[in-house]
Simulated scan of single mutants.
Amino acid sequence: MAAPTVSPRDNARQAADLVKSAHSLVIDGHDIQLSDELRHGLRELLRHIAAGDEVEVVARREYLSTQQAAEILQISRPTLVKMLDDGLIRFERPGTHRRIPQSALEEYLAKEVDARKEALRDLADTFDPNVPDQIVSTR
Rank of each mutant, 00 (worst) to 15 (best):
H40W: 02
A15R: 13
R47K: 12
L80I: 06
Q14R: 13
K117Y: 05
V57M: 14
H30L: 11
N11G: 03
N130Y: 14
H48S: 13
V57S: 07
I49L: 15
I89Q: 05
E54H: 12
R47C: 11
V55N: 11
A22D: 05
D10C: 05
R121H: 11
Q74M: 12
H23W: 03
N130M: 13
R61K: 14
L80E: 02
H48L: 06
R139F: 10
E118H: 09
Q102T: 09
I75M: 05
Q33K: 10
A69P: 07
V57Y: 13
D125L: 07
V136T: 08
E44G: 05
P8W: 00
G95I: 00
G87E: 02
T96N: 12
Q68D: 15
Q68I: 00
A16H: 10
L88A: 06
T126P: 01
P4H: 00
E62V: 11
Q68E: 15
R93N: 06
D85Q: 04
L105R: 04
S7R: 11
T126G: 01
R13N: 09
L45R: 06
E112D: 08
D122W: 05
F91N: 12
A70D: 00
Q33M: 04
K117Q: 13
A104H: 10
L46E: 00
A59R: 13
H23S: 13
